[in-house]
Design a protein around this nucleic acid. Structure first.
Length: 581
RNA sequence: GUCCCCGUAGCUCAGCGGAUAGAGCGAUCGCCUCCUAAGCGAUAGGUCACAGGUUCAAGUCCUGUCGGGGACGCCA
């Protein structure tokens, strides 16, 4: 139940009645009408722009419409006052009972409160992480993983049927390099000196892979030429890397529904089928590209190759799908992969990519647009860098020196919950500073702590109440008489709780899980403020031993707060803490 | 050269086309006999980079300029 949507329905009904009475034209488009919380609380509880939005299509002055609407809206349930303000805003004042009315709903629905039917069961595929299976994941991957997972949670909560998918780049040259690197570790395990030359992966994480290879094959691969072992070692090493990556993801609390293999696209006709689909639309041709601007390669030679007409979709140049020797470029399997997603019947696609893939976005959108005939929207979310610091000083990262920070390092150092929450306190397209010291700080400056503390305090109040003999059953509290509520802090908190469904809908629409984190910070603030009121005026304390009705009403508010914080943290994938010590 | 992202308080950042642009930190001043002070408040602090445009209404949308970051290849 979204109270803002509810009031908007009243507005629509009022417009309908006025139209029926001839006071407004019939059939007005209400899509520009919004009902939202006013920025300034002095303006009332809710504001609608209806009169201004309808003025032009109705060919009437905003104030005339506003006056007429005010008369109708005054009759709506819960509305105790309607003011026409400014250029034609309608400010609604609502009875406190309207806001407190959200409490039984929260207590009845539990952490399902705020679930929306925005998605209407539409199928959405969220592809994220997709790190190359050549080594452990680093912090950047962690941010993408957390973002993608939280976005998937959010969309699921908003009524979409979500698939989490990981595209495994196991088809390119880099997995051959992995195989050669693992082979050197295998030689090392056999007592030989490994030749980890420039271009191979030097990481220690391949040492156990080499040992397992020795256990598996003994020494019999040692004298064999590369073509005899490459395929087997590659497959083995790749699956070992993917096992490691799955473990890392599990450490972050991320579970994928599908791992989609790039290799499965080769030699199976999938790429050819996707290309044929493009050819059928006249989007593939043989041509010669201009040399890239700005940074012309020394060895540039114009050559004829197979190109995709990406410029027809707003890309800067057409993109090669085949090299001049006839082999596929990296783009070709990506075309096939997105074709496959379209064919699997998804209604929406989301790709979560590192910011270094920015130059790739237009051609991906072009492909999906072309292959779905514009039916399937693709949203590409680019994840900006994570700047790691400790006590304000940058943490140096160097692959060569072996000091680069892995996903696992971060989780081990600060824990899954902190890592996840902090990574969701920025928009995906803004750089994120992650300070190892600050994220563990127990202060208001640290949103993770602040939100967890609010939840723990709510539980602490509940424990106190229980000791004082009050029943804490949410179903019973849902039936509590809420008349004793009404203090300004209580009302502010209830208002914030009532905003949750609307917040979910907005965050889901915009694919912005960080909004949930900021909302929780606000909600926690409203709760801390109210609890503090009890220190200043003891009659405002939640638990009043000699006033059971008041206590029950307040416990309903406290429990509802805990429930919504838990629901929000659930979307972020963070475990709520019931006590801090 | 082209494209993408960013530019909001001293710092770190929110901000849904709506009204007098908000938090935290830092600064100044307050608040614990009492549900977690790990907290709550008050004050000070702004040319929303700049210039045009669209709109009843622009921090928000469009164009351009400047500044910061990133990306461009028969790499993956």
């Amino acid at each position: 139940m979204d109270v803002f949507a509810e009031v908007k329905a009243h507005v629509a009904a009022a417009v309908g009645r006025l139209a029926a009475a001839g006071a407004l034209p019939a059939g007005l488009d209400l899509s520009a009408v919004s009902v939202e919380p006013p920025r300034d609380a002095a303006h009332g509880d809710m504001a609608t722009n209806a009169a201004m939005a309808l003025a032009r299509p109705a060919r009437m002055s905003p104030r005339d419409i506003a006056t007429a609407l005010a008369g109708e809206l005054g009759k709506a349930p819960g509305v105790v006052g309607v003011d026409v303000a400014g250029p034609g805003f309608l400010n609604l004042r609502l009875a406190p009972s309207f806001w407190f009315g959200v409490l039984p709903t929260v207590l009845t629905q539990g952490t399902g409160f705020g679930r929306a039917d925005l998605g209407a069961g539409r199928r959405v595929n969220v592809e994220f992480v997709s790190a190359n299976p050549t080594g452990p994941m680093h912090v950047g991957h962690a941010r993408g993983a957390v973002f993608g997972d939280a976005l998937a949670n959010l969309l699921g909560f908003a009524g979409f049927d979500v698939t989490r998918e990981y595209y495994v780049n196991d088809g390119g040259a880099q997995v051959d390099v992995l195989a050669r690197s693992a082979f050197e570790r295998y030689r090392e395990a056999c007592g030989l000196e490994p030749a980890i030359v420039e271009g191979l992966y030097p990481g220690d994480y391949l040492i156990p892979v080499g040992e397992t290879l020795k256990a598996k094959y003994g020494e019999r691969l040692l004298d064999r030429p590369e073509q005899e072992w490459l395929t087997e070692v590659r497959e083995f090493a790749t699956s070992e890397m993917m096992a490691m990556i799955r473990e890392d993801l599990a450490a972050l609390g991320v579970t994928m529904d599908h791992f989609y293999s790039e290799r499965s696209l080769y030699g199976t006709g999938r790429i050819e089928a996707a290309l044929a689909a493009l050819e059928g639309r006249g989007l593939v041709y043989e041509g010669v590209l201009e040399p890239p601007k700005g940074k012309t390669p020394d060895d540039w030679e114009p050559r004829e190759q197979t190109l995709f007409r990406a410029t027809a979709f707003g890309d800067d140049v057409d993109r090669p799908v085949k090299k001049s020797d006839g082999s596929w470029t990296y783009f070709a399997p990506d075309i096939a992969y997105h074709f496959d997603k379209v064919e699997r019947g998804y209604d929406e696609l989301i790709d979560v990519l590192g910011a270094d893939h920015g130059g790739y976005v237009k051609r991906l959108k072009a492909i999906v647009s072309a292959l779905s005939d514009d039916r399937v929207p693709l949203d590409v979310k680019l994840i900006q860098l994570v700047k790691l610091t400790k006590g304000g000083e940058p943490v140096k990262m160097s692959k060569r020196a072996g000091t680069f920070v892995t996903l696992r390092d971060v989780v081990d150092e600060v824990g899954r919950d902190v890592a996840r929450f902090v990574m969701l306190t920025r928009k995906n397209d803004a750089a994120l500073e992650f300070d190892f010291d600050k994220v563990l700080e127990q202060s208001k400056d640290n949103p993770v702590f602040y939100v967890q503390y609010a939840h723990a305090r709510a539980w602490s109040v509940a424990r106190r109440a229980e000791e004082a003999g009050f029943a804490l059953d949410d179903a019973a509290l849902a039936a509590a008489d809420l008349a004793p509520l009404g203090a300004p802090g209580e009302l502010a908190l209830a208002r914030k709780l009532a905003e949750w469904p609307r917040l979910v809908a907005l965050a889901a629409q915009h694919h912005e899980p960080h909004r949930v984190a900021f909302y929780l910070y606000d909600l926690a603030g409203a709760f801390h403020a109210l609890q503090h009121q009890g220190k200043l005026e003891s009659e405002l304390r939640f638990v009043q031993a000699d006033a059971p009705e008041t206590t029950r009403a307040r416990l309903a508010l406290v429990r509802a707060t805990a429930v919504v914080i838990a629901a929000g943290l659930g979307i972020l994938g963070v475990t709520p803490m019931n006590e801090m010590r």
